[in-house]
Nucleic acid binder design. Structure first.
Lengths: 204, 204
DNA sequence: TGGAATTACTGAACACTGTTCAGTATATTT
DNA sequence: AAATATACTGAACAGTGTTCAGTAATTCCA
């Protein structure tokens, strides 16, 4: 049946149109200014139409989050390619933190905002972050196989490295490092220094 | 002048009434459900009245944030009292993470939500977190004086410890550890294990 | 090919949000 | 007692996510 195939294809294209518009608006105008109405305006449809393709805003955000994660994975695949597991781990660390600081609104969607996780909760599992997490855990696995890390449990290693990276990014993008009273430039340097120092301490 | 004194006192009492109501609603009903109208309802005033005491919602949240930080400081002063600098640092670490996980909505206001920082931005500085941060940095200073930490720069030490703690709490309260596919109980254990392991690695 | 059935979309409406402000009621001053 | 100053109200405005009766276009079937 060719017609229902086309219908299905058009439906997927419409979903694409919506999430592409949403993603662009997040990056260009910020998360806060991106409302259902604004997205609808941008793609020249009525607000109601969006609800024919996504059950609610949470579900739309879940789809955009997925998109953001695939962008992060691309970044990892471009910037963390060393054949040495340890160097690759270092590359991931810097890549992660830079991604967060350079794309604060995508980072919000991926790791800070509640909304998309409501959909994950309903679905029963959250798969959007799987590939990026695997990129990290695989590298950690490689490091530990060769005895390059001072951890005994790979899950503790993953939790530590991720939490350190996320802590640095999220406190920075949410302005909490203001308490340290450093100039912007100094603060950036300090963050990089902290990553370097952390990597040094976990190295076997 | 007795009357203007009383007026001033009444004004402060009204501000108290508002932030106390707001703080209670954050804890009891959650941040999301706490609107200006709901706060006004709770204290039995009209919504407009709140704007006679706080310029906008950001300013009100700034005041509530201050309150939350003083609650955290009280927790530190109750739970991190060891005379040994190293043990005190350990106590602060666990105290911080437990506070965040037990009071997620206050933690939001203190370290995650943007709104209160808009007021800090306008004021030019953010003082709400000063006392808690000082509690940490003083203890770090004590540790380093006695050569108990593997850090050379106390600012890097503070940044590292805080970021690790914040990373653990915020990824947990925002459900991102779902990617690890562990049961709730296991996840909590893993977080505690990670703190222990981190403290072990930074100890001289 | 023409009429019926299905599908896609609209936009007004609902209940909510933060915020403003003319109007009122109370308290203070003269 | 009258004039002034203060405190408060609540309707109104522009925005939000979401729903749904109504319309327009498309597809199906006789």
């Amino acid at each position: 049946m060719g017609i229902s195939d086309r219908k299905e294809r058009e439906k997927q294209e419409m979903k694409r149109l919506i999430i592409d518009a949403a993603l662009r608006m997040f990056v260009e105008d910020g998360y806060e200014k991106t409302s259902i109405r604004n997205i609808a305006d941008k793609i020249e449809y009525s607000p109601g139409t969006i609800y024919l393709y996504y059950k609610d805003k949470d579900e739309l955000l879940y789809a955009v989050q997925k998109e953001a994660f695939s962008k992060m994975l691309e970044t990892f695949q471009a910037e963390a390619t060393s054949r040495s597991p340890w160097k690759r781990l270092e590359q991931i660390a810097y890549s992660y933190v830079n991604f967060g600081i350079n794309h604060p609104d995508l980072y919000d969607l991926m790791f800070i905002i509640r909304a998309p996780m409501n959909t994950a909760e309903k679905k029963g599992d959250w798969e959007n972050g799987d590939d990026c997490f695997k990129y990290l855990t695989d590298t950690i696995g490689d490091c530990m196989e060769k005895g390059l890390l001072r951890y005994t449990d790979p899950r503790v290693a993953a939790l530590s490295i991720w939490s350190m990276g996320h802590g640095l990014v999220s406190l920075q993008v949410r302005c909490r490092f203001k308490v340290m009273q450093l100039a912007d430039e100094q603060m950036s340097q300090m963050i990089n220094l902290t990553i370097r120092e952390f990597l040094r301490t976990i190295k076997a």
